[in-house]
Design a binder for these strands. Structure first.
Length: 423
RNA sequence: GGAGAGGUGACAGAGUGGUCGAAUGUGCGUGAUUGGAAAUCACGUGUACGGGUAACCGUACCGGGGGUUCGAAUCCCCCCCUCUCCGCCA
């Protein structure tokens, strides 16, 4: 959510931001609702002020006297009028709130222009893609793959996109998660194990609601949502709280399974481990002072990159252009790992600065030492990392002539052996 | 899931229909006192929104929502949460 003052005072700024994101939002309609709301608010408030004054005067009168009863009759009419106006005001207020929720976050000045994914900027590339691609095949074509990653039985038990991980498959998933969490801890992130069902208020704070309701699994009858990412419960950890400025920045990380309905995808994009309805991910989250958030974004991205470097996987970093930036982000980098068998890049992390956009929705503030007043923090998050696509790249890139997969040196202490075997 | 007790400001804790944004205490801040400190004393100390260049003014907020009433922290209804006991379970 944006600052209402921002749209009132500098609507052209907001208009430019919407244009940069290539979104279609009627800002004038929002401004009109805002103006109507303020007019109605002032009317209601002055009526209430009069009512309060009359009530104070009545309190001084002896009850039951003719003056008192006359005042009661008079105030009955006034009260009815206030009730009616309050009803209107409430409706307008709700409209205004909805309108404000429909406005996207402003992209940062350093975000490149662009309409869609093709116009993202390749920020950096690491590792040698040519070296790993020679004999690699897609991971689902590796002999024995189905034994360790059992999609058929997952489909029977739950549905498509819910695989079983068996034997070394399960072991590799667990090793990766353990490795990620240990590395993240070294980088200063405090580990958190959050609830994986969240209420509507939490889903709204991070922006899943109201825009992306259909993408989450929802439980009945409690209307709790299965988390699409640990970002949701983690961001809401400090919801409606005022932090000490000296406590910032706060770094946290959390492993959760993630659940995404992702209806409407098909083809090679969703083959094998490329896209699942349930997957494991470690998320990194930061609450920081607004003056440091872009510096913190660079550090966050580097923390995520380091994991790929230690796993010796070739990857590249994309700087998202305005048109491919999400609704809530001010700036975003995607980390894409090279999948040697599929010969394509797979997104394994998305590192974003939300500035105060989520913090305003979630009311996460800090008490400014300078002014003594509560100010909104900036929130950032990024994956560190999502497991299945790292797994896909690992299987494909490290496949040996004998059908085994070589485990990267950094992972061996966690996996317990140097090779994964499909037989 | 059943029965009971509760949810008030940073914290503790008064307040059961009007003068209550809310006593009192603690904490915190500023000042006085002191060689310095403790103790003591004085004053101050919430958030949000709207209006105003500003000083400031107005309104709302006593878990959340609705209702009764001229008027609700206080009465009624629904929901959420916490605690105690019972049941059930990992």
């Amino acid at each position: 959510m944006l600052d209402p003052k921002l749209i009132r005072e500098t609507p052209e700024l907001v208009r430019a931001a919407i244009a940069k994101k290539h979104l279609d939002v009627d800002l004038d309609a929002v401004l009109a609702i805002d103006a109507a709301w303020r007019t109605q608010l002032q009317e209601v408030e002055s009526l209430r002020a009069a009512q309060k004054a009359a009530n104070t005067a009545m309190a001084a009168l002896p009850k039951g006297t003719p003056e008192f009863l006359a005042k009661v009759t008079e105030m009955k009419a006034a009260s009815a009028q206030i009730k009616e106006r309050e009803g209107q005001l409430k409706e307008t207020e709700e409209k205004f709130r909805q309108a404000m929720l429909s406005l996207p976050n402003l992209p940062h000045a350093s975000v490149p222009e662009g309409r869609n994914a093709e116009q993202n900027v390749v920020f950096s590339t690491h590792g040698d893609t040519a070296a790993v691609s020679a004999h690699a095949i897609s991971h689902w074509e590796i002999p024995g793959f189905d034994r360790l990653f059992d999609f058929a039985r997952g489909a029977k038990v739950t549905g498509a996109g819910f695989p079983f991980y068996v034997g070394d498959g399960a072991r590799l998933v667990r090793s990766l998660l353990h490795f990620f969490l240990e590395e993240d801890a070294k980088a200063g992130y405090v580990e958190v194990n959050p609830p994986i069902l969240v209420n509507a208020a939490s889903a709204t704070a991070t922006g899943q609601l109201p825009d992306k309701e259909g993408q989450m699994y929802e439980t009945t009858p409690d209307r709790l949502f299965a988390v699409p990412t640990a970002e949701v419960p983690l961001t809401s950890f400090f919801r409606d709280e005022i932090l000490e400025e000296s406590a910032l920045p706060i770094y946290r990380c959390a492993y959760t399974p993630c659940f995404r309905r992702e209806a409407g995808s098909y083809g090679k994009d969703v083959r094998g481990l490329n896209r699942l309805h349930q997957f494991d991910k470690v998320e990194l989250l930061k609450w920081v002072h607004p003056s440091t958030s872009y510096e913190e974004l660079d550090k966050l991205r580097d923390d995520a990159e380091r994991l790929l470097r230690k796993l010796e996987l070739p990857y590249r970093v994309l700087l998202m252009c305005g048109g491919d930036l999400g609704f809530t982000q001010a700036k975003k980098y995607d980390l894409e790992v090279w999948s040697g068998g599929q010969k394509r890049w797979l997104e394994v992390s998305s590192c974003s600065n939300f500035e105060a956009f989520q913090a305003r929705r979630a009311q996460i503030r800090y008490r400014s030492k300078e002014t003594g007043k509560p100010e909104l923090v900036h929130t950032l998050n990024g994956s560190g990392l999502a497991v299945p696509r790292v797994l896909a790249a690992l299987l494909e890139n490290n496949l040996q002539a004998d059908g085994r997969v070589k485990i990267p040196a950094a992972l061996v202490p966690y996996f317990g052996k140097e090779y994964l075997s499909f037989s």
